[in-house]
């Protein structure tokens, strides 16, 4: 069971007696219903960037001024009742490493360029509707990256005497970069690694990531520890929290590990990625008994190899190389077989 729509009622009485007389009691008015709510997803992604997992989930694009983008989103009513769904675009910001969609009335240039085919849907239980979003970037648009989100919002039914409703909304993020040329590609660097112990004594490893590219990035990744005391290995550990960084921003990517781990030293291998951009760094670290340990500068692994593996290009190169080698071998092997035949016939 789930509830869609909660209105907060706060009762303030001038005296305890009045509260009792008037029957005022704090509470929420809720419209209870079952099912899985109302959800949204992106339907179209650019053909040219389909290998990038970010473009499968968000509208991530880099376009020139004057470009018109069309993308569809699909809204599904997976609840057990009919719903009125409000569809709109709001601005968004990157705050403290998180992508945060602003309130419904918040606008920026991107939202003024974006129009939606429908703004209000009456959706029966179990139905789905595709909504076309058109982003018309004006020819005089200034260069830079802007953020927004397309929302599907469900509000509780207005109650008698109240016009205030509660909203639950799910959104598709928009990261739109406007640039005359190809723009500065997405990139980031891992500056330093700091082992420490948190307030509960758990070992943590903080990696300082800097967005050195021209586009916002969503960093996630994992950590492996090897060559520890008595040859111990541990991991992979998943990053605790995905970090979103605007161009030029720096932020910490923190891994919290098990308190059963000895202090080390460990050979740490950190793999961080945002879409197709991957960075792998290694360093020898030692967790302190308490507080903050020694910060170390990591060594970066060859980036080209990682990028090639992630894009599947390496697979193609290996297959092509195998073909060439086999063909050469066949050419050199054929005369030998003929000679053997000749010998046998003698």
């Amino acid at each position: 069971m789930a509830v869609i729509g909660v209105i907060f009622l706060l009762s303030v009485a001038s005296s305890a007696a009045q509260a009792q007389e008037s029957g005022i009691s704090g509470g929420a008015v809720a419209e209870v219903e079952g099912g899985q709510g109302v959800g949204i997803k992106l339907l179209d992604m650019p053909e040219s960037t389909q290998s990038d997992p970010r473009t499968r989930t968000y509208i991530v694009d880099q376009v020139g001024p004057g470009t018109v983008l069309e993308r569809r989103v699909q809204i599904q009513n997976n609840s057990t009742s009919d719903k009125v769904v409000y569809v709109y675009v709001s601005s968004a910001t990157i705050q403290d490493g998180n992508f945060v969609g602003d309130s419904s009335s918040s606008q920026n240039e991107l939202t003024t360029w974006t129009t939606l085919e429908q703004s209000q849907l009456k959706m029966p239980s179990g139905s789905e509707v595709d909504v076309l979003a058109t982003i018309s970037v004006p020819s005089d648009a200034s260069e830079g990256e802007q953020y927004g989100a397309i929302w599907a919002e469900v509000r509780s039914a207005p109650l008698a005497g109240s016009s205030i409703v509660q909203a639950s909304r799910a959104g598709v993020r928009i990261y739109l970069s406007v640039d005359e040329g190809n723009g500065t590609p997405a990139d980031f660097a891992v500056g330093s690694l700091t082992p420490s112990r948190d307030a509960e004594g758990l070992p943590t490893l903080s990696a300082l990531a800097e967005n050195t590219g021209g586009r916002a990035i969503d960093i996630s990744g994992e950590l492996n520890l090897a060559n520890g005391p008595a040859g111990l290995s541990a991991g992979p550990f998943t990053v605790q929290q995905a970090t979103t960084l605007a161009p030029g921003d720096s932020g910490e990517v923190v891994f919290t590990l098990s308190d059963e781990l000895p202090n080390g030293p460990w050979d740490a291998t950190l793999s961080l990625k945002s879409g197709l951009v991957e960075r792998e760094v290694t360093a020898t670290i030692t967790f302190p008994d308490a507080g903050v340990g020694e910060t170390v500068a990591p060594n970066e692994a060859p980036v080209l190899l990682i990028t090639l593996v992630s894009s599947g290009v390496l697979l193609l190169l290996i297959a092509a190389g195998t073909l060439i080698v086999l063909r050469r071998r066949r050419k050199t092997a054929t005369p030998a077989v003929e000679t053997a035949h000749a010998d046998a016939s003698v």
Binding site: M1, A2, V3, I4, G5, V6, F8, A28, A30, V32, Q36, G37, V38, G39, I40, K41, Q74, I75, Q76, N78, V154, Q166, S168, R169, A170, G171, V172
Partner: peptide
């Protein structure tokens, strides 16, 4: 899809 479901009680 990605879905946000509001609280059961408040």
């Amino acid at each position: 899809v990605l879905t946000m479901v509001a609280p059961e009680t408040a």
